[in-house]
């Protein structure tokens, strides 16, 4: 595999984490425009841990997930009371607030004679754990995809379990779910925290892949794309968001056919799909049909 293939595959893997995070909330019935904020929380947390305090990446990633879950929980407390469009707006506002917080953080330590750490809009350089520990790009790719497969396996397991069924009940009709005995508010907070942790894990890996992060990495573009990936790919299975990422980054970006006009093609694709397949390519009907064929 050449460098470029490795980097495209790594990018697909990284962005799948936040796409899955958006997907998790959508199937629970909430459209969040703010998952990029938790992706950023993960990136900054893990970056600070490895680059400034010498924490190994695996531990830093767990810390990032904790921070992402905590941030998502706190954002969820007031916003999950809101419905539909209001929830979407509130999550977007929360993510933008987080981004501005990143712009305001100047927290550096002298390491080997060099100031290391978040420096506001100047970004955060030198998150070099991967290089210092001799992890080759292929090795990092394997790490990203290994974790991603673990997450997808967890999703598939969950979807077959009662937990997954409850998520779908919430997503389809929270009031009916409440009548059947689901503790709706508590459940949604748990889902929001899990989605935050998942986005943060992606962010932690991204920071170490790129070695440099800055607040603008975590703006609305990332949030909108992660939602779009889940919606294009389909809401019937956890493979949906992966398919969405694959279509955008793998096919559109990777092929370079549309060059600078790719965003227009992508926007058109989203619009067309939302009209003809409002729940994505791999929607529930397709998944039920596939299950019957395979059974």
């Amino acid at each position: 595999m050449d460098d470029y293939t490795v980097s495209v595959l790594t990018n697909i893997g990284l962005i799948s984490f936040i796409a899955l995070s958006a997907y998790l909330l959508i199937i629970a019935g909430e459209m969040s425009f703010g998952q990029q904020g938790f992706f950023g929380v993960g990136a900054y947390t893990a970056g600070v841990a490895t680059a400034m305090y010498g924490v190994p990446l695996p531990i830093a990633a767990v810390m990032a997930m904790g921070a992402g879950a905590a941030a998502a929980f706190l954002v969820g407390l007031p916003t999950l009371r809101l419905r539909g469009l209001y929830f979407a707006m509130a999550t977007l506002a929360a993510a933008e607030m987080l981004r501005i917080v990143f712009e305001l953080i100047h927290f550096q330590r002298e390491i080997d004679g060099e100031p290391i750490g978040p420096d506001g809009t100047q970004g955060f350089r030198g998150i070099r754990w991967v290089f210092e520990n001799g992890v080759e790009p292929e090795g990092f790719l394997a790490m990203v995809w290994g974790l991603l497969f673990a997450v997808v396996a967890l999703f598939l397991f969950m979807e077959r379990s009662k937990l997954g069924a409850t998520l779908r009940m919430l997503g389809e009709d929270p009031e009916l779910a409440r009548m059947l005995g689901v503790h709706v508010e508590r459940f949604k907070l748990g889902v929001a925290a899990a989605a935050g942790a998942l986005a943060a894990l992606g962010g932690a890996l991204y920071a170490h892949h790129n070695t440099y992060i800055e607040p603008r990495n975590f703006d609305i573009m990332l949030g909108v794309h992660s939602l779009a990936y889940a919606l294009i790919g389909g809401l019937g299975t956890a493979f949906g968001p992966l398919l969405g990422v694959l279509i955008d980054i793998g096919a559109l970006e990777g092929s370079r056919v549309f060059h600078g006009y790719r965003m227009i093609v992508f926007g058109g694709l989203v619009a067309v799909l939302l009209i003809f397949r409002p729940r994505g390519l791999l929607d529930e009907r397709v998944v039920h049909w596939l299950k019957r064929r395979l059974a």
Partner: peptide, 16 residues
């Protein structure tokens, strides 16, 4: 729940 199968709807009734 319109997008859940008949069987899944029944299982939902046994939530607790």
């Amino acid at each position: 729940f319109p997008n859940m199968s008949v069987l899944e709807n029944l299982q939902a009734g046994a939530y607790q």
